[in-house]
Write a protein that binds this DNA or RNA. Structure first.
Length: 454
RNA sequence: GGCGGCAUAGCCAAGUGGUAAGGCGGCGGUCUGCAAAACCGCUAUUCCUCGGUUCGAAUCCGGGUGCCGCCUCCA
């Protein structure tokens, strides 16, 4: 089956057709001016599932994900905190790596930092200048928007409409208010690198054009990122690269919609956020993954406690089955295909539909478990293992694997069973209550008393 | 003001022409000493509204209404 993804540029679904067996993807990462929040994680989780699916379909995937570690805000915030800008950038980068790792998001193939690619950036800016699409004014270099007729093709905007809402002040050096900076001259005390235009630093959009094509070549398969980057960030990336080189930039554009908070977009610049750390301190990473994947990536959705709680209950349903299946069927396997499930993901990464199938499997599996039908249970478990793996879930065996603990738990379970057969229900219930306070659930099943971790 | 998107049960959410997936919650039942887990049944004759196209529309077209995003740093 053909994998299709909705392409923002052509405004239609497009089959994925890499030139060779490798799918080349550039995913706009963070500008590390602030701590990562749950909104960021949505994009990372979606891309992680997509990448795992592509690999399952037999593709190699090269995923490049940038860290933009220098820009106005990085400088500004480090000053406000009274620390070196590099320290701020490094701290936020590390936090991003920590939370994504905790979420079982695979690291990108390459994670280029803007500050480590100044040479490529300067080179690209020079080419743009040479081709007459950019100009220098006292150390700043601006892209000449009017020189590129296709400007606006990604976001569907036209230059004259944009002029209406443009802010007129600030950019005194620009010839046209819509022009944007490719290179910024360093003011006193600001970090700088040497360039043909003097000491300065890259503008905000240029690093992505330079680094994506450095690692993926021009005309790479997919450029991905948050919906809020469509304009101006991605629009500018296309304009500067294509105007500067005459070569095509990215073949398709994939945008992940916003995660809102109380009806508004989560945004680090306004502090209207829930940090990634806060959520992961409270919930199993799988819960956040389920919360994310239960909504299609191109639909806006709301971050709420109710939503997270719902995802938690749903995840527990999956885990309960997994645990029961594991004890009934110690030798688990992973299916090699599950066509219906694959079809759902091939269809513009329809994870909600795919999850629907997951829950169908859970019900079938529970039925098989109750009926003692090992054949069906084996088949269902294998398909479920495949599906959960592709979506990037990592069920944890919460029970510590120490033999000592197992022995103690077995003794406790037996004790509860004995109390019950002696009709000492008060004591049996007291035991259950106390264990529950420590996060241990006692279940009296036909096969005997079991203890599981919540 | 310009551009784009969305409106499906109490809540979340799939479904782009053939007669409403799935999850959470609730109610009733089975099992249980009681629970928990699980299973079974019920919980949208209907998809914001009005009109149109069609044998047939949640799905296509047009008019309303409401919400969100972008147009400024943002995933």
């Amino acid at each position: 089956m053909q994998v299709e993804i909705y392409d923002t540029l052509s405004r239609q679904r497009k089959p994925l057709e890499p030139a060779d067996n490798t799918v080349r993807i550039y995913h706009c990462g963070m500008t590390v001016q602030a701590r990562p929040h749950v909104g960021h994680l949505r994009g990372y989780i979606v891309m992680d599932a997509f990448r795992r699916f592509l690999r399952f379909k037999g593709y190699d995937v090269t995923l490049v994900q940038n860290i933009t570690d220098i820009d106005d805000k990085v400088i500004e915030k480090s000053r406000a905190e009274g620390i070196d800008w590099r320290m701020l950038a490094e701290r936020n980068t590390k936090e991003l790596l920590d939370v994504t790792s905790a979420l079982n998001v695979e690291p990108p193939t390459v994670m280029p930092r803007a500050t480590q690619h100044i040479e490529e950036i300067v080179d690209l800016v020079s080419r743009i200048v040479d081709r007459g699409h950019a100009y220098e004014v006292s150390g700043d270099v601006y892209f000449d928007v009017r020189s590129y007729p296709k400007y606006g093709k990604l976001s569907g905007k036209n230059i004259d409409d944009l002029m209406e809402g443009v802010r007129k002040d600030l950019a005194d050096n620009k010839r046209d208010p819509l022009d944007f900076a490719l290179w910024k001259a360093a003011k006193e005390g600001e970090p700088y690198w040497f360039s043909p235009w003097g000491k300065g630093r890259p503008g905000w959009h240029i690093e992505c054009s330079a680094m994506s094509t450095l690692y993926l070549g021009s005309g790479f398969d997919i450029h991905a990122g948050g919906e809020d980057l469509v304009f101006p960030h991605h629009e500018n990336e296309i304009a500067q690269y294509e105007a500067g080189t005459g070569k095509p930039f990215a073949k398709a554009w994939m945008h992940v919609e916003m995660l809102n908070l109380q009806g508004e977009k989560m945004s680090k610049s306004t502090g209207h956020v829930v940090t990634a750390r806060d959520v992961l301190d409270l919930y199993d990473p799988n819960v956040l993954r389920l919360f994310t994947l239960r909504v299609h990536y191109r639909a806006q959705t709301e971050y709420t406690m109710e939503g997270i709680q719902e995802a938690r209950s749903a995840w527990e349903r999956i885990e309960n089955f997994l645990e029961a299946a594991r004890s009934a069927l110690p030798d688990q396997s992973v299916a090699s295909s599950y066509p219906e499930f694959e079809q759902a993901l091939a269809d513009d990464l329809n994870t909600p539909k795919a999850l629907g199938l997951v829950f169908d499997l859970v019900r079938e599996g529970n039925e098989a478990l109750a009926a003692g039908n090992t054949g069906i249970l084996t088949d269902v478990s294998a398909r479920l293992n495949l599906a959960l793996g592709i979506l990037g879930f990592k069920p944890s065996d919460k029970r510590g694997s120490s033999e000592e603990l197992d022995k103690v738990l077995a003794i406790v379970a037996d004790f509860r069973a004995e109390l019950r057969s002696a009709k000492a229900f008060d004591w049996a219930d007291k035991l259950r209550e106390n264990l529950q306070k420590s996060g241990l659930i006692i279940e009296d099943t036909k096969e005997g008393t079991r203890i599981r971790f919540k």
